[in-house]
Structure formats: structure tokens, C-alpha cells
Amino acid sequence: MKLSHGDRIALFAPAGAVSERELLAGIEILESWGLRIHIPERIFETHRYLAGPDESRAREFRELFLSGDFKALWAARGGFGSLKILPYLKELELTRRRSYPIIIGFSDLSLLLNHLFDRFQIPSWHAPTVTFLARLSKEACDKLKALLLGRERFKINGLPLIQGEAEGFLCGGNLASLASLLGTPYWPDLSGKILIIEETNEKLYRLERLFTQLALAGIFEKVSGLVIGDLCGLPPEGYLSILKEILPPDLPTGYAFKIGHFPESRAFPIGQRARLTISEGRALLFEIDK
């Protein structure tokens, strides 16, 4: 699941309306990596706060995905809207090709990425959208390039909360976006998977509500491990007591991983098998061979 110099990358807008200035700044970064960028004609279409009507956004994704013309599809922006196109992908017909384009995005795109792996076993990269790329630090941008071009394997450190070890496919992403799937036909099967969570623009009591919602739905009893990324820029002491109250005492859990909506954010591969090791003073998540 890697890119190469000269690969054709199509942008797509499944969620919020796209800023031309931010998009062009992100495209400049991708082109500096030697990637060839395709910009669909309707990328700047708007419908309220969305990047066009639901059916239009879904149709664009289906056409780009099935065209066979692109090595990857990179989401222009998150925001809100991916949830509304999932019903239009229910009848997504997959051709008999050996491979499909790599899907890249984060935030609201968490819904689509997890849906594609859950229903079609298609892996993807949970990584900053194109409009977010210019906000990354140089170190984070270089790290993203190395991961996507296959120069490094996925590995990330955090801090320990509940010691233990876990192994399974990686899943997850934005907490509020994922929670919005509960009670719908699109909630993914997380059994035995390592769940990664990050969040932005939520107050502490809302975070507690969302974590409680997942707990009451039995999600933390199903996953094999839990990885907490950035939570709205809050210091850990602001939320650790909440997690200790909510989480099962034997669920291997780490926190303060560099995953989320901030300049040092790191990407992770949804659908990749990985191992989580939590010991005293250390938490490590890394990919393993299937």
C-alpha cells in the first residue's frame, strides 16, 4: 500500500466544501513529491456546507474508484458529509482487478475508510486531507512522505495507561464521526481489532459522553487494544481519569500517540495487522506481516 514517483493521484471531496487556497497549498506539497494530481471539475461545488449534493459526491467517488486510472484517491477535506454518501455505496460493484486505488484521508473520512475495510476488505491510509497538509510540521510531512512512499514501516510511540499486549487489524479514527455510526447498518465489526481514537473541537464533557456511548454499546469489550491519539489538544490529566473509569481494566491501552488534528500528526494504515505493546513507561504500536 505505497505510492511511487510519477503516480497519478485523484482528489475527491466526499464531505465539507473545499477551500481553493488550502487545496492548492496541499497540491503543491504532493507535486513536490513527484506525484501527478488530478483535480475533478466539481471539486469546488457547494451545497450548503457540503461539497455538493450527496448523490453527486458519492457518484464522483464511485467513478474515480472504479476507473482504474489512479494509484490513489486523496480526500480534499473532512468536515461533515461522508456519513451521507454511505447509502449510495451500498451497491458498490467491485471489478475483478487485483488492486484498487489507495484511499487517503482522515477526520470525517474515518467513516468511509472503516466502511471500505469492513465491507470490502480494502485497506487505506488514515492521513491528513489535502487541505490539511500545509498545516503539518516539516517533520510530520517528511514522515508522511516516507510512509506513503514505502520508505518506512508504520511504527509509533505513546504512553502507557493499561499494560498488556494486543494484536489485530488497525481501525478507527475520529471519535465523534465513528460514534455517529452506532445504531446504523454501517457500524463496522471491530471484534479483535486495535481501535485508534482521536478528536478535535470537542469539550471535555462531550468527550466523556462519546467514550461512554462506546462503552455502553460494548465496543471496548470487543476490541483487542485501544490507542488514544490527540484529544482536542487537552493535556492527558484532563481525560485520563475519565478513561480509567470507563475502560475495562484488562484492555491494553496507550495514550498521547501523535495522531489527530495537529501539526505533528502521524498517519496509520487502516486494515493493516499490527501489534500493540504496553509496558511500564512505554507504549508501542507497529505493523506486522499478515
Rank of each mutant, 00 (worst) to 15 (best):
L3C: 14
G34V: 09
P269R: 09
R8W: 05
G229E: 01
Y255M: 03
T277I: 15
H38I: 13
D54W: 14
P263I: 02
F220V: 06
P249M: 03
S224C: 14
R206I: 13
S224A: 15
G26L: 13
L116F: 13
P101R: 01
F106P: 04
I278L: 12
F65R: 05
L216H: 11
H261Q: 13
Y255Q: 04
P248K: 01
A274H: 00
S19M: 02
K203H: 07
S180N: 00
R206M: 13
I27L: 07
L83H: 11
G271F: 03
S107K: 04
S56F: 08
H38D: 14
S124Q: 11
L149W: 11
G218K: 06
P252S: 05
F117T: 06
K90G: 13
I259V: 14
T129R: 03
I9M: 10
G68D: 09
G183A: 10
S137C: 11
R153C: 11
K222H: 08
P248V: 02
I278P: 06
G81T: 08
R21T: 09
Y205C: 02
L182K: 11
I197S: 03
I85M: 05
A58P: 09
E55P: 09
K155F: 09
L276A: 03
E202S: 11
L159P: 00
A274M: 01
C171K: 04
G164Q: 10
E198H: 14
R48W: 09
N174F: 10
D7Q: 04
G158P: 05
K138N: 12
S99M: 09
C141P: 04
T184W: 07
F80T: 05
G68L: 06
R36T: 15
K203G: 07
L195V: 01
S124P: 04
A267E: 07
S279I: 14
L111K: 11
G225M: 02
A76P: 13
L144F: 00
E264A: 09
I9L: 06
E31I: 12
D250Q: 12
L276H: 01
T129H: 14
L66P: 11
L148E: 01
E139K: 12
L92N: 09
V18K: 03
I43Q: 04
R59G: 14
H115C: 07
W125F: 09
I85P: 10
L24Y: 12
F80S: 14
V18G: 00
A51C: 05
I156H: 00
I9H: 02
G218S: 10
A58F: 10
F132Q: 14
P236M: 01
